[in-house]
C-alpha cells in the first residue's frame, strides 16, 4: 500500500512540460490484434489548448488511439508522451487519469447507483488512495467546484437524483462534467453527440468549444456537421495512420481524402 501511495504521489507532482507547445506526442505507434493492424506507424501531435477533431471510417483506429493514450491498450511499438517528459506507456489507467488525461467513453458511463453530485464528487482532482477516501470530507473550495460544474453542464436541479435516472443526453453531459471535475489538461471525447437531439448537440458544441484553451480537447466524431461546427483542426485517420490533417476546407479538398471517401479506395 505504501509503495502504491508513493507512486501515485509522484505522478500527481508531474506536470507535463509543454514548452514546445505540444501536449501529446504519439510517434511511430503500432498496435495489432491477431495480425490486424489497428494502428500502423501513427504519428500525431496535439497542441496545448487546441480543439482537435479526429474523423475516420469504422476500423480506422480512432478508439484504439484513445485506448493507447489512456493506458487501456499497450502498443507493440512507438512512443506516447504527455508533454515532453512523461512517458505514458509506463503508467497504468489510474495513474494516467491522475496525471491529467480524462476520457469520455462512446457509450455514456456514469455511476448509475450514485447521485449526480456523488458522481462529480468522486471525479474531483484529489488524493485517490483508500485511506484518504475513508475519512474524506468535502471542503468549501471543492463544494464550489462541484456547484460550478453542475451549472456548466446544466444539471443543478438533478444534483440529488440518481445518475441512472438521467436521460441519455444528460448522462453524456454528466460524464463531461466528471472529466472537468478532474481538472485534466487533456480531454479525450469519444462521440459526444451520438444519440443526442439537435438542441442537445448544439449545447454540446458550445460546451466543448468553451473548454478548449484551458484544456486541450480531442473529439472523435462521425457527425460531420457537428465536426464542422466546432473544429479548427481536423485529423483524418485511415487504416491506422494519419491520412490528412488541416482545416475542414483543406480536408474536404484533399486528394487522398477524396480518393478514400469517394469510393476509389486502393487496396
Amino acid at each position: 500500500m505504501k509503495q502504491q501511495a508513493s507512486v501515485m504521489g509522484a505522478t500527481e507532482n508531474l506536470v507535463p512540460d509543454t514548452r514546445h507547445g505540444v501536449i501529446l506526442y504519439m510517434e511511430n505507434v503500432s498496435v495489432s490484434f491477431d495480425g490486424f493492424k489497428a494502428l500502423n506507424d501513427l504519428n500525431l501531435y496535439i497542441n496545448d489548448g487546441e480543439l482537435r477533431c479526429l474523423i475516420g471510417a469504422n476500423g480506422a483506429g480512432k478508439t484504439t488511439l484513445m485506448d493507447v493514450i489512456t493506458g487501456k491498450t499497450r502498443p507493440d511499438q512507438g512512443k506516447v508522451n504527455f508533454g515532453q517528459q512523461i512517458d505514458l506507456l509506463k503508467l497504468n489507467e489510474a495513474e494516467i487519469a491522475q496525471a491529467g488525461i480524462g476520457r469520455k467513453f462512446q457509450k455514456p458511463t456514469v455511476f448509475e447507483a450514485l447521485s449526480v453530485y456523488e458522481n462529480l464528487y468522486l471525479s474531483l482532482k484529489m488524493d485517490k488512495g483508500i485511506w484518504c477516501s475513508l475519512w474524506h470530507k468535502l471542503n468549501g473550495e471543492q463544494k464550489d467546484d462541484i456547484e460550478r460544474i453542475l451549472a456548466t453542464i446544466g444539471l443543478t436541479e438533478q444534483r440529488h437524483g440518481l445518475a441512472g435516472n438521467l436521460s441519455h443526453g444528460q448522462k453524456q453531459w454528466l460524464e463531461i462534467g466528471m472529466l472537468l471535475a478532474a481538472k485534466p489538461r487533456v480531454l479525450l471525447v469519444d462521440e459526444p453527440v451520438a444519440g443526442m437531439t439537435l438542441q442537445e448537440t448544439e449545447r454540446t458544441a458550445e460546451l466543448l468549444t468553451s473548454l478548449a484553451g484551458e484544456h486541450s480537447v480531442v473529439v472523435v466524431e462521425h457527425d460531420m456537421s457537428f465536426v464542422r461546427s466546432i473544429a479548427r483542426t481536423v485529423t483524418v485517420l485511415h487504416q491506422g495512420s494519419v491520412l490528412a490533417e488541416g482545416t475542414m476546407a483543406q480536408i474536404q479538398s484533399h486528394p487522398d481524402v477524396k480518393r478514400v471517401y469517394l469510393g476509389e479506395e486502393s487496396t
Binding site: 502504491q4 501515485m8 489512456t70 487501456k72 497504468n92 489507467e93 489510474a94 487519469a97 491522475q98 480524462g102 476520457r103 467513453f105 458511463t109 456514469v110 455511476f111 448509475e112 447507483a113 450514485l114 456523488e118 464528487y121 468522486l122 471525479s123 485517490k128 488512495g129 483508500i130 477516501s133 475513508l134 475519512w135 474524506h136 466528471m178 478532474a182
Partner: peptide, 25 residues
Amino acid sequence: NSKAGKIVMAIRDAENRSRFVGYNT
C-alpha cells in the same frame, strides 16, 4: 457511507470508468 464506500459502489457498477477517473480499483 464514506467516500470510499461510494467508490466501491462505483467500482461495482463501472469498474473501467472508475479506473479512468483515477482510482486504483
